[in-house]
Amino acid sequence: MGTETFLEFEKPIAELEGKIKELRHLADNGEVDIGSEVARLQNRTEQMLQETYSNLSPWQKTQVARHLDRPHFSHYVAALIEGFTPLAGDRLFGDDRAIQGGPGRFRGRSVMVIGHEKGIGTDGRIAHNFGMAHPEGYRKAVRLMHMAEHFQLPILTLVDTQGAYPGVGAEQRGQAEAIARAIEALLEVKVPVVCVVVGEGGSGGAVALAVGNRILMLEHSIYSVISPEGCAAILWRSGDKAREAAEALKLTAQDLFKMRVIDRIISEPTGGAQRHPQEMVRRVGAAIEAAFAELDNEGSDYRASRRQKFLEMGRVGLA
């Protein structure tokens, strides 16, 4: 199992895994032979994970999407992008490590990869500001989008943010404008754009990197106009109603697929991406390859087709 951090609704699973550990400990001491008992418990755990994860509520999915052990930008890039070279800075104010980006090679093609990085471990999370970008981050992204356009590199974005950072400096330096320019740049470029929401797609800070010809989401990721907590605070006037807000917002990959806002759901291994990060990265790689291959066959006017896609959004196929 790839995670030691259990979510609240995973309590029964945590207990089972605890028992397995105990038994193993006893076996290691040569006290008893517990092979069959461990196998039985493992089966039971697997079954429970399967059941739990095929019936996650929107609020539970929100927690899974935010799980600290889910693979991040850096994991995907390390496994999927050869020669990835992160480029820094917006040439105006500074470098924002909440957004990473640079050129690299994905299965034979040169691409520009841009995404949010929430950071790993406490120090990492602080260094990357928990994936909450300042205007510098979005402006760096715009610079890289223009570079991709100039050198004809397809763009791949990985979306994973709670939202853009709400702070004084961010506002002073034009957070709203920076986000708007990123959206604009993604609508302008003529190269193909593939976006993957790998964890949390939080509001404007997420859509700034999520305007693509193909938009994919991981099975237990979320993508929403506002966090359930924020929505609850405003509409229910109580942060305790986040569960209800998560339901009402229809923020799951399954909901978005039904509304035709996204193109494809990438299934997660049993128990979520956090339990089998390598397998998750492999599946995401396959999905990205398929998306680029589809776009290769589709023709050349990627800007026009991207615009058309967004014009039709909410107009076509909405029940």
Partner: peptide, 18 residues
């Protein structure tokens, strides 16, 4: 954005920009 329209309201950011 109008929260009550969920993701469809967020999508108006790219749509108006377009």
């Amino acid at each position: 954005a109008r929260m009550q329209e969920g993701i469809l309201s967020l999508m108006q950011m790219p749509r108006t920009t377009l």
